[in-house]
């Protein structure tokens, strides 16, 4: 018997502002997999996530999530958009943001509900944010905000997390801590994780597979199979070189801007 795929794209193409950004994408992700989505800026990594959220419609082909056609507002996918920080003046408690992930799209006022309060508390506990859940979201650090947003993404019972650069603008310790948190959610709860990253290195020990988006196409496989000089050169269509540093990091250099860099450059 065939295992039910968590995500399936068939001959998919996406258009953004009249321009085709990738075409002929065939991709399958199994339930419980931790997948990193890599590639240069503007290659369409975020668009890939938005396509499976139903926010950006496909120009061609089909996308199915847990065997069903996608629709906007599905409870099965938790989304964490690429963003900068919240406005420091935003005077809303962190826990209220998590609650909005549960029923924020419904009309009317929010009435007290012990079941919903418990569900929110469970998620806040899971991401280790209980200590600062009552503080205004704008006052929290980048790492703290990221934990709250992961709780928000999970709270509606999501079986898949679509995370757009969740490690961006975090320091090394927080990158490590958030990566480990995501892996543990993936393993203990069987949640499928699709994580867009600029830099593979912080998540390299955790990912099952990488999906590389470049040159209008997509390539997927084990990290050591995909992130190689020959494979990436073929994908980009221009010479690209993959280097391994002495401390075990991978660096991709080529005619495009380097797609990985030392985190201290931030």
């Amino acid at each position: 018997m065939r295992i039910l795929g968590a995500l399936q794209l068939d001959h998919a193409a996406a258009r953004l502002g009249g321009r085709l950004i990738w075409t002929e994408v065939d991709l399958e992700v199994q339930e419980g997999e931790f997948v990193a989505i890599l590639g240069p800026n503007g290659a369409g990594k975020s668009t890939l996530l938005k396509a499976l959220l139903g926010v950006v419609p496909l120009a061609e082909g089909s996308v199915r999530v847990f065997g069903r056609p996608v629709r906007r507002g599905s409870d099965e996918i938790g989304y964490l958009p690429q963003r900068r920080r919240f406005d420091p003046d935003l005077r809303i408690r962190a826990v209220d943001l998590v609650r909005l992930g549960l029923d924020g799209e419904r009309w009317g006022m929010s009435l007290p509900s012990p079941a919903k309060t418990n569900r929110v508390a469970e998620m806040v506990e899971l991401v280790g944010a209980a200590a600062y859940q009552d503080r205004p979201i704008g006052e929290l650090s980048g790492g703290e905000q990221q934990r709250i947003l992961i709780a928000q993404a999970l709270v509606s019972g999501a079986r898949m997390l679509a995370l757009d650069e969740p490690l961006e603008s975090l320091d090394l310790n927080n990158q490590q801590a958030i990566s480990e948190l995501i892996r543990s959610i993936c393993q203990t709860r069987g949640v499928t994780v699709l994580l867009v990253a600029h830099d593979i290195n912080p998540i390299l020990p955790f990912v099952d597979r990488v999906v590389y988006v470049a040159g209008g196409h997509v390539l997927s496989g084990k990290p050591q199979e995909v992130i190689r000089t020959e494979t990436l050169t073929a994908l980009y269509g221009t010479p690209v070189e993959v280097l391994h540093t002495s401390d075990g990091r991978i660096v991709v250099v080529g005619q495009y801007e380097p797609v990985t860099h030392h985190p201290d450059d931030h």
Binding site: K50, L53, V55, R72, G73, Y79, L80, P81, R83, F86, L90, I92, L97, L100, G101, G104, E105, I137, Q152, A153, S156
Partner: peptide, 11 residues
Amino acid sequence: VDPEVAVARGV
């Protein structure tokens, strides 16, 4: 407070 996630959730 959270426009992008709100849109993705169907607002």
